[in-house]
Amino acid sequence: MKRILLVKTTSMGDVIHALPVVEDILQYFPDAQIDWLVEESFADIPRLHPQVKQVFTVAVRRWRKHWWRCQTWREIATVRQAVSAQSYDAVLDLQGLLKSAVMACWARGPRHGYDARSIREPLASRCYQHAYPIAYHQHAVTRMRTLAAMALGYAVPQDRPNYGLSKQHECSKRTAFLAFHATSRDSKLWPENHWVALGQHYAAQGLQMWLPWASASEQVRAHRIAVQVPHAVVLPKLSLQQLANEIPQVCFAVGVDTGLSHLAAALDVPVVAIYTDTDPAFTGVAGGRVAVAVNIGGKGQVPAVTTVLTQLRAI
C-alpha cells in the first residue's frame, strides 16, 4: 500500500481538475491511501470522491486578512501538526505555487512537483526533492495527470479523464437543465437576456430551467431571469455537496466560467461552458469519459444564444 498526499488548494475548478489524478493512481496502485490538502472553502470537492481518505483544510485566504492574530497562527500550527503526523510515500504538489510548495513541506515524505521552467513561480520548485519538466501550454488536467505519472512511475495516461464522481441517470427521465449564470467577476457574466432566451427556448420543449445561486446578488439575478421564463425554478441556497446531488438529475448544463460548470462535467453531465473574459484553452471545462463538455467564446467575446443552442444539439 502506498500513502500519497495531494496538495491542490484552490480554486474550485482547479481542484476539480485534480480529481482524475486519484483515479489514475488507483488504477496502478489499487490499495493506495490518498489524502488531500485543500482550502477550506473547497474541501467538499475531494470529499465527494469516495476513495479520498483524509482531507486536511487550510484557510490561506482568511489567514492573509488576519495574519497577526494568535488564532491564525494556532490554526496553522494545528493543520501543520495533523499533516506531519504520518509519513507519506509521495507528496505531490499539483498546485505549483510557492504557498502550496511550502505547505507540501509540512508533510513527511519525498516531495514531487514541477521544475522551475514549468510553473509561474519558479522558486516553488526548490521545495521539491523531485521536479519534472512538464509542458506549460497544455490543459491543466493533462499537466497534473502527467506529474502524478512521472512521480509514481507509471505511463502518462492518454485517455479521457475519469473524475470518479459519476452519478449518471437516464436522461429520458430528466425534465430540466441547469443554468450556471453566476461567476466570480462581472466581466465573466453572460447577458441576462441571453439566459432568458435560452430558457424560453427549452421551456417550449418542456424542459425546466434550474437556477442555482450563492450570494444575495446572484439570487436577485436568478429571480430576474426566472420571471421571464415559463416554469423556471430558482433553487434554494444549496451547499456544494447538496448541489452535487442535484446536478445528475438534469439533462445538461450551461454555465459561464465558474467552478460549477467543471463540477457538472466531473459528474458526467453534458456541459456547454461560455467564456467572455478568459481563454478556456488551458483551464476550460474538461469532459469526462461519458459526457461531452464544449467550451465556447474567449476573452472579449459574447457567444450568441444560437451558438449555444447549436452546441447543445451537437452534444
Results as ranks from 00 to 15, higher is better:
residue 111 R to H: 13
residue 169 H to S: 15
residue 213 W to P: 10
residue 181 H to D: 07
residue 181 H to N: 09
residue 172 S to Y: 10
residue 139 H to Y: 03
residue 125 S to H: 05
residue 108 R to L: 15
residue 160 R to M: 08
residue 109 G to C: 04
residue 97 L to I: 02
residue 180 F to Y: 10
residue 159 D to F: 03
residue 142 T to A: 13
residue 145 R to L: 05
residue 190 W to Q: 02
residue 184 S to V: 09
residue 181 H to L: 02
residue 124 A to R: 01
residue 191 P to A: 10
residue 134 I to Y: 05
residue 135 A to F: 06
residue 164 G to N: 00
residue 113 G to Y: 03
residue 176 A to P: 09
residue 182 A to C: 08
residue 149 A to W: 01
residue 179 A to N: 04
residue 101 A to W: 03
residue 167 K to S: 13
residue 147 L to D: 00
residue 163 Y to M: 04
residue 96 G to N: 04
residue 96 G to T: 10
residue 138 Q to E: 07
residue 167 K to T: 11
residue 115 D to V: 07
residue 120 R to N: 14
residue 105 C to K: 11
residue 208 Q to M: 11
residue 97 L to M: 12
residue 101 A to L: 03
residue 188 K to S: 07
residue 134 I to V: 13
residue 119 I to E: 04
residue 211 L to T: 06
residue 135 A to Q: 14
residue 119 I to H: 01
residue 212 P to S: 06
residue 132 Y to E: 11
residue 155 A to I: 03
residue 135 A to I: 08
residue 107 A to I: 02
residue 161 P to W: 00
residue 151 A to T: 05
residue 123 L to E: 14
residue 190 W to I: 05
residue 180 F to L: 11
residue 135 A to T: 12
residue 106 W to F: 14
residue 93 D to T: 06
residue 94 L to M: 12
residue 200 Q to T: 05
residue 124 A to M: 05
residue 133 P to Y: 12
residue 168 Q to S: 13
residue 197 A to F: 08
residue 184 S to G: 12
residue 103 M to Y: 14
residue 113 G to L: 09
residue 91 V to G: 00
residue 109 G to A: 14
residue 170 E to A: 15
residue 94 L to E: 09
residue 202 Y to G: 04
residue 164 G to M: 04
